[in-house]
Design a binder for these strands. Sequence first.
DNA 1: TATGAATGAGCGTTCATTCAT
DNA 2: GATGAATGAACGCTCATTCAT
Lengths: 188, 188, 188, 188
Amino acid sequence: MPIQKVTKNEIIAKALNVFSNKGYHNTSMSDLAAEVGLLKGSFYHYFISKEELMVQILESIDYELKSNVYPLAFHKQYPASKRMKLFLKGLSKVVIHKNGGCILGNTILETANLYPSFRHLLTTIMDGIVQSFANIYQELYSQEQSQILAQQTLMELEGAIMFSKLYSNPSIFQDFQKRMIQRVETDS
Amino acid sequence: MPIQKVTKNEIIAKALNVFSNKGYHNTSMSDLAAEVGLLKGSFYHYFISKEELMVQILESIDYELKSNVYPLAFHKQYPASKRMKLFLKGLSKVVIHKNGGCILGNTILETANLYPSFRHLLTTIMDGIVQSFANIYQELYSQEQSQILAQQTLMELEGAIMFSKLYSNPSIFQDFQKRMIQRVETDS
Amino acid sequence: MPIQKVTKNEIIAKALNVFSNKGYHNTSMSDLAAEVGLLKGSFYHYFISKEELMVQILESIDYELKSNVYPLAFHKQYPASKRMKLFLKGLSKVVIHKNGGCILGNTILETANLYPSFRHLLTTIMDGIVQSFANIYQELYSQEQSQILAQQTLMELEGAIMFSKLYSNPSIFQDFQKRMIQRVETDS
Amino acid sequence: MPIQKVTKNEIIAKALNVFSNKGYHNTSMSDLAAEVGLLKGSFYHYFISKEELMVQILESIDYELKSNVYPLAFHKQYPASKRMKLFLKGLSKVVIHKNGGCILGNTILETANLYPSFRHLLTTIMDGIVQSFANIYQELYSQEQSQILAQQTLMELEGAIMFSKLYSNPSIFQDFQKRMIQRVETDS
DNA sequence: TATGAATGAGCGTTCATTCAT
DNA sequence: GATGAATGAACGCTCATTCAT
């Protein structure tokens, strides 16, 4: 009976971290194998290729967001500001890695034009995030306006993470979060 | 004088394009050499390394922006909206490449943590852009408010380009531009 | 278990030969790989770099000499001349390669100023050889005198090999050996 | 009228130094050109190849020794010890370079088996040096004995330089010189 | 004579991937 | 399932050399 040193999910979680920190092309299969304590050859028992690994990482992100994060934006009894706060927190936990930035933004910029298999997943995820933001905004704005604001919010989020990375200053992203929460606060 | 097939500036211009489209790590010196019609080995007559080439690309961007683009934001006799329009147009010409996105954003996400020589130039450039936006906003807002808006604008710009790239839809970035121009329009 | 075409020790033995014949800088990793029937890339499974390979070669020489050669100079029941004879024979077997000369001398002249990691091993080995010669001489000479003679012997040995190589004439080295044996002969 | 920045002899002198310090294979034509203040391309106006340059260096050493150094060993009115002293001094000046060792020994070990054009010159030079030593010894020894001692002296000289290099200790070579002078001293 | 751009082969090294055990 | 040896292409870069100007 062969021993199993790791599970696919463990690999996905660790590989996500490595990719976030080093980028797709700058991460080697050796790096990934080392991170999970396997040898390079063993790695291919779990994922047939580097590309397939990234696909499954993105799929797991999609699943995680759908299961645990999007619902935070749809909590009917919470006010918009609370939903915004919880949603941003949940989103950050899944998708943002300290110093490494946002796996989505990183992967879009580095690979969107190269791997159609990535692009489809990335659009699905980005759409999901936008719709969640839009739902929050609809407490205060028209549907059309909410849609626009939602997209802007995600854009600014990605930009804020980029700035945080460039200046090695996490408070840039924290300020962004505060701004977004305030925007939907109705201090009546 | 020996035959010269290319100039350093031509190389910088073409390499900028290739890096924009393929990313830093995914671009090989062969790719770059082929783009300008040289062999890999010949390329090293112009740039001693891939890293140095990128440094010089970023320096040339910095120079170009300082010479021709930042001034557009400081035109005293133009109204804010016109300055915003001209500035965004100038900025786009230097820094954004169709399908490839923004060389600044790409390079920040892919290399900011790896190459200190890049980071310093990138912060210089980003600071310059933010100050230019801030100057435009100061026609309508307080200095403090302008500063914040300027940074937000650049963040959203980078996010907008990311979306344009992901969805292969240039109008996302164009809509962003319109929004920014409207924001400083005073319909008097 | 994966197929294994060679062992590390086989590589060390063959690489020692190639380095001896061609010199450190004039030997390419392809040369070495070809010698053991591997491709260049496969070579790096055994040694992470050319420098590390040479380090391990020198380490294996040090080990071999300590295990099997130095003891020949310390045989208490043998007379000095017999010990000299056996020691020179043992030394030659480990360190001298036909036509290629002495790996120690070659490596000292070519790399001593370039690779500190080599230099340390080379001094260790040279010291060990000198001490062995000194021990032989102590049967006939004072300790101080033996020390000087021992160093001279090793110097002349390296010079003799250099001459043998230059004139493609092995008898120059053989004559040297006879001379050294006679020097410690006490025909009583 | 084209300017001439350097003379062939200047190049030979400087190239000799560089080769002594870095070795033949580890010295690039760029290194040599830089040392004499030329560009690589210009270098080929003086020497058609790296190999030809080394040939001319060896030829110039041969000429220099014949003109100015060998005669020191044949001074009829000087005693052997004085001739030995002067000869060793003259030889060192031409052939030994601080830290870099002896160009003859270096070149023999690194290239003797590769370049027949080098080998012939090197044997000529080594023969010349041996004959000079032999002439000195003939004041005290038989012709046959002198011949053997002369060859041993040159061997030990090369070995002494090797040791000096390995241990970064010039006094090893100086001690060798003293020993050789004492050997032919007749304190009558 | 001097230049320096260009060449094309080769360097040491790393890569994603394969596969016999 | 895990190993790690092997692959072969590609990497960034350097080499000795050529040659139009």
